[in-house]
């Protein structure tokens, strides 16, 4: 899995010298070490997930899982409803991501491009909320959801986040501000309304930032634990983090299930990132800078 540090070929335009080549090799070496550090915990998770239960604890974490066994993965699916957790989480994360894409685009456009009374205070209100520690708001949030009789429903998981977050609105608004105003002005002269401008100009030009927002939202929702733990209690809406947390006891954890579960739970996130990664870098490129 480690990216092979091939000796780079002479890629620079001026190329040639030994010194330059040595420097490139050093960069590759350092990057490879960084990459190894980045994935080492994953490698160990995977390695341990393939060890039989009886040697999982008695062998060192880096001792290779030889012979490898699929038994932990089969146990994960036969004894536990892993597909169910993945589906529940995907439903919640998917809905929230979709909602945020739509509502954040709307709000960010208004904040970036429309001049209306109350814009500044509202925007700064959103930003200030980014700074509020969220831990204690879990209690009021529970009270609100409880009052609405929504505890232990998908709605309790989805509603608080589906309308967008200050971070998301901040991110997309910054991007919208970099799209040249002339494009929009020209369209307005041609009689295009806000809706048309959004659909024809802003959204097509903003695919990269929307990909970024989608990835961030999906990953954050997928990995969030405390709110789902508080807000749900039955099989039909339990998400994967809550399931994994339940495998951790006070002194002893069911590691032979926990580790493969964590490995499996990572796959959808990696897939999403691979899908969007080219867009992501391009998008942020335009966000911060003119």
């Amino acid at each position: 899995m480690t990216p092979r540090a091939k000796t780079p070929r002479n890629s620079g335009q001026r190329g040639g010298h030994v010194l330059r080549r040595m420097r490139a090799s050093t960069v590759y070496l350092l990057l490879s070490i960084g990459a190894l550090v980045s994935i080492a915990p994953y490698l160990m998770t995977l390695n341990a997930a393939f060890k039989p239960q009886s040697t999982l604890l008695s062998t060192q974490a880096w001792t290779p899982a030889v012979p490898a066994t699929w038994s932990n993965f089969t146990a994960l699916w036969s004894q536990y409803d892993m597909s169910g957790f993945i589906v529940h989480t995907a439903v919640v994360a998917g809905t929230i991501t979709l909602g945020q894409l739509v509502f954040t685009t709307f709000a960010a456009y208004a904040f970036a491009r429309l001049d209306f009374p109350g814009r500044e205070p509202l925007f700064w209100g959103f930003i200030a909320m980014m700074m509020v520690p969220q831990i204690v708001t879990l209690i009021p949030l529970f009270l609100i959801m409880s009052h609405l009789n929504l505890i232990d429903t998908y709605r309790a998981l989805i509603l608080p986040y589906v309308f967008g977050t200050p971070y998301g609105i901040f991110l997309v608004r910054q991007y919208f501000q970099t799209i040249p105003a002339d494009l929009e002005a020209a369209a307005r002269i041609d009689g295009a309304g806000t809706w048309t401008i959004l659909r024809r100009i802003m959204i097509p030009l903003s695919k990269p930032i929307l990909a970024t927002l989608a990835t961030i939202t999906f990953v954050n929702t997928w990995n969030s634990l405390l709110w789902p733990l508080m807000a749900t209690s039955s099989e039909r809406d339990e998400v994967v983090t809550v399931g994994i947390a339940a495998l951790q006891g006070q002194f002893a954890s069911e590691l032979h299930i926990l580790l493969p579960a964590a490995a499996v739970a990572l796959l959808p996130l990696v897939a999403i990132f691979l899908l969007f990664q080219r867009h992501i870098v391009r998008s942020i490129a335009l966000t911060g800078l003119k």
């Binding site: 536990y80 409803d81 169910g84 439903v91 232990d152 099989e235 339990e238 399931g243």
Partner: peptide, 27 residues
């Protein structure tokens, strides 16, 4: 939580129930 699977089609059922977001209120 990671409770043992009771119905093999639990996932499908869950999907169906969310589709309408009409799950009954807890408790």
């Amino acid at each position: 939580m990671f409770r043992r699977a009771r119905k093999p089609l639990a996932a499908a059922a869950a999907l169906a129930s969310v589709a309408g977001l009409t799950t009954a209120c807890g408790g």
